[in-house]
Design a protein around this nucleic acid. Structure first.
Lengths: 333, 333
DNA sequence: TCAGGAGTCGCAAACGTTTCCACTTTTTTG
DNA sequence: CAAAAAAGTGGAAACGTTTGCGACTCCTGA
């Protein structure tokens, strides 16, 4: 269990441990013969440099804190995957924290991460209030937000262009011949407000009537989409397509439609948003708008690295374009 | 960016920094009046203890390395969720690594984790060869494996009782009246061998004929399940139920069945394994065997903590019972 | 022969903690 | 009331590394 230190290999090599350190770090001020000898010896003795000691003197941990509401969520786990890959490729490691159900938890984990001396924090906010919640810490360490739109805040973030996503989607529906399109789902939270706006903008441009259906406290879940849709379908259906603010809600609506024998897409076209993995499943095949998760993750760690390594001040808002994924829940009229 | 240290608050409080350290750590050998004064001061000055310095002297990082083939995977992200929660509740943080596509990557990240001085490692193996692959490191740090069955290896692990899972499932099918049950999918890798064994045992006890269908290099994916199933259905269907070794494969089979107008469950009952989240989706509703992921995660970190904190030697094999989730792809004959 | 420079290498400080030991002050006890 | 015990505090070492600076060796050229 006792690991071998610099001092150990120094002793074995008959040099000072400064020399060993330099040999490993590729310092130019060292003989190439001794360097090789030492490197070989390190290998034999199974020496690996102790990162916590190193961090101590370098005042840099090469650690990035990743805080997500809960990693057990398609969007976030996918994001985490690419973030970790990209970070590691650049010599960083990821410290993972679930910011749990409430803001208190979120603040706690950020505090922990600070104590751990992470070089930067990547956070996907759990609510629009997150910014205020951790404001006190974001100036102590480079931070970039992912996926929640902080528009007016002086904070770096990368996000999908939600507004453009719904715009593209309704345009697609229009081109398919639909003239009565219902927007279904959440409208509060910045993200969902933007999605609604994209729909509204498209309607305006195309001369369509804007029609919304949502309950005040709607959440993005299949169960809730189902409940909402059952309520919705109890009224006459005087629209030919619905744009769900979220894939989960769309899936819930799908379930309700099945039960009520409303055929999708024959009677009703349906389009969602997020491209969660479930949408590509057999029997589902939901047409949707994809958030470019891979790019978001990569851009986010790039931004963070820039802040860390170059000390870049200020902030940048990186907006990525979503794309339409055509599957089989929409049909031409 | 410059954070406040022990020395800073010591100066402000007019005491030595040993005293401040003691006040914070709740040492008994300190006056309760000075303790309160110091704690209040720390709060005001926004002091948080530097964990890397602390780790240095304590020779303990309170860090657990979590290595998974890829976090963007239902099973693993869910596992990671519970593991992180449980770990943090006990004062540990999680360092996340994807062990990537190959064994080389897996070895690399384990090495990194060792350099980071993690107190322990939680690893879900990417292949049966994982054990051999990282053998050299597992005796340098407490390690527990998750979900791959290392039966004969002197290594701690927690896993679902795969064999029992398939046993329960086929028994269920039998009780429903099925007498011709086909086992569909992978059979190599320890896990899947065990699953196959459970099916075989049930068949033996119940006097059923064992029937297998699989391709040599089958993987657990919907696409592959689909391909296999198309091939399968090109032969006459002289069985009334199929047990898929994996939910993903089951879903692929479902898709093929739909295309060939084979009705499930009317013509064919279907049962999967894993209870991935997709199985509970509308239109799918796959009957399956659930791995108790939450329990697995919690047990795993408990085992690891025991090794870390109590220096427990030896190894334990923790086998958890899977449960049958009845949904709508099975019907009584 | 020797000054001086290039090329190597060692010494020691520093990073921010925790904790052992010693020391001072206060309290208890005989 | 003196001595011993207890309580509270400070000094300093230690953890394993990086790196500035000084020192040493060796060689070149005058």
């Amino acid at each position: 269990m006792k690991s071998v230190t610099l001092k150990d290999v120094a002793k074995a090599a008959g040099v000072s441990y400064a020399t060993v350190s330099r040999a490993l770090s590729g310092s130019p001020q060292i003989g190439s013969d001794t360097r090789e000898r030492i490197i070989k010896l390190c290998d034999e003795m199974g020496y690996t440099t102790n990162y916590v000691a190193r961090s101590m003197v370098m005042k840099k941990t090469d650690l990035i804190g990743l805080v997500v509401p809960s990693i057990d969520n398609q969007f976030m786990s996918e994001l985490a995957y690419y973030a970790e890959m990209s970070a590691r490729a650049h010599g960083y490691n990821i410290m993972l924290c679930n910011s749990g159900p409430d803001l208190k938890q979120e603040k706690t984990v950020v505090k922990i991460l600070l104590g751990r001396q992470v070089d930067g924090i990547l956070i996907v906010p759990q609510s629009p209030k997150t910014y205020e919640n951790i404001k006190a810490y974001t100036d102590q360490v480079p931070t970039v937000f992912v996926s929640e739109n902080l528009r007016d805040q002086p904070q770096s973030y990368v996000a999908a262009d939600n507004s453009r996503g719904t715009y593209i989607g309704t345009k697609y529906l229009y081109d398919l011949g639909h003239r009565d399109i219902l927007y279904f789902g959440r409208r509060h939270s910045t993200t969902h407000q933007l999605r609604a706006e994209g729909y509204m903008k498209a309607c305006q441009e195309l001369g369509l009537k804007q029609r919304f259906y949502n309950s005040e406290y709607s959440r993005s879940s299949i169960a809730h989409g189902y409940e909402m849709a059952k309520e919705l379908f109890s009224h006459p259906i005087d629209y030919t397509a619905v744009f769900a603010s979220t894939d989960s809600n769309a899936l819930g609506l799908l379930k309700a439609a099945d039960e009520m024998h409303i055929s999708i897409p024959d009677q009703l076209s349906l389009i969602g948003f997020d491209n969660i993995s479930a949408t590509s499943l057999p029997r589902l095949e939901l047409t949707t708008i994809e958030q470019p998760k891979r790019n978001m993750a990569i851009q986010a760690v790039d931004m963070l690295r820039d802040k860390i390594e170059n000390g870049t001040q200020g902030y940048v808002h990186q907006i990525l374009l979503p794309t339409l994924i055509k599957r089989s829940t929409c049909r031409a009229l």
